[in-house]
């Protein structure tokens, strides 16, 4: 390892006090003899109270990465990491019972659609009571049960929602229930996997604003997964861009938008049509086509992340 690479590796490495720190996470699917890598040597960290945007197109490994953090990968996935810690808990070493206890209390998840979290044959109230019963005891349980309505009000839901079944709620309301469940036990980290991709733009803005203020209130950190760069510009403090299973760029949101360094990031930002002015559609298409031609793993050689400016890392030749 050269001096420059060594420097990059130490700078991107986790700092003390990070909520989540991951070093060289590798996930592959399939058998030992025919393994398809989905996440390749992911190293990143999420600081306290930080929103980390995780961007990449379908198949880039972003959902696999989040499932690996939640330790909810399917059985055929093979997962290894030099380090994966939530606070001072080693997630790789935690057993099933410890993980069950950890989820919702320290680490929570908001899915794309609510179907993965809400049970269709249970009223909303029972879903809350169930989550609370599984993770709390005694006085704390009574205390949390007592503030379900306050938590609901914090995500702009009326208490009447408690007596309804998930199918009686609109898509936006269901996502709000999921947000309420995710913040109920005040976890350290929330992983939100495209939480508004099924919603209209107006509800999308309302739900994301609710999510942001609820997160700020409990001081949780968040990993916000999505492919919509405009949404990331609105919400993320830092952005990590994944391509073919690895990070090609990680940096503060402003640096990513103002000075993207990796060609893939540059195309991603260049191909967003504006809502403000009519652009040259031929030029936009040309950038997209370049991207289509470059959208193969071989077009981007595997380079290590290097620091290009303070806190801004890109997998490029310097």
């Amino acid at each position: 390892m050269s001096a420059a690479q060594l420097h990059a590796a130490t700078a991107v490495a986790p700092q003390a006090g990070d909520v989540l720190s991951i070093e060289n996470l590798r996930v592959s699917y399939g058998s030992r003899f025919n393994a398809v890598p989905a996440v390749r040597n992911a190293t990143f960290s999420v600081a306290r109270d930080e929103v980390f945007g995780l961007v990449g197109e379908s198949g880039s490994g972003k959902s696999t990465l989040s499932m690996a953090i939640l330790r909810l990968l399917p059985a055929q996935a093979h997962c290894e990491a030099d380090r994966m810690r939530l606070g001072d808990t080693d997630l790789m070493a935690a057993g099933p019972a410890a993980l069950r206890q950890l989820r919702w209390t320290r680490l929570s998840y908001i899915p794309q659609g609510s179907m993965g979290v809400l049970n269709p044959v249970m009223r909303v109230r029972e879903q809350f009571l169930d989550t609370i019963a599984d993770h709390t005891q005694g006085a704390q349980r009574r205390e949390i049960e007592g503030r379900i309505e306050t938590v609901l009000a914090g995500v702009n839901l009326r208490p009447a929602v408690l007596d309804q079944f998930p199918h009686e709620l609109s898509g936006g309301m269901k996502q709000r229930v999921c947000i309420a469940l995710a913040i109920l036990l005040e976890p350290e980290l929330i992983i939100a996997d495209e939480p508004t991709s099924a919603l209209d733009v107006v509800s999308q803005r309302q739900v994301l604003e609710t999510l942001s203020s609820a997160r700020r209130r409990i001081g949780a950190s968040m990993i916000m997964i999505g492919h919509d760069m405009a949404l990331q510009a609105q919400l993320a403090d830092r952005i990590g861009i994944m391509f073919a299973g690895r990070f090609v760029e990680i940096g503060p949101t402003r640096a990513i938008f103002e000075a993207p360094r990796h060609p893939y990031t540059q195309r991603l930002i260049g191909a967003i049509p504006s809502i403000r002015r009519r652009q040259d559609i031929g030029e936009l298409a040309r950038r997209g086509l370049e991207h289509a031609d470059g959208a193969t793993a071989s077009a981007h050689p595997d380079l290590p992340l290097r620091e290009v400016s303070a806190g801004h890392f890109a997998a490029i030749e310097l």
Partner: peptide, 14 residues
């Protein structure tokens, strides 16, 4: 409601 891809143009009040 359409997000603008610019970190300097954030959504205002809820």
């Amino acid at each position: 409601s359409i997000p603008v891809p610019d970190p300097d143009e954030k959504w205002g009040a809820e």
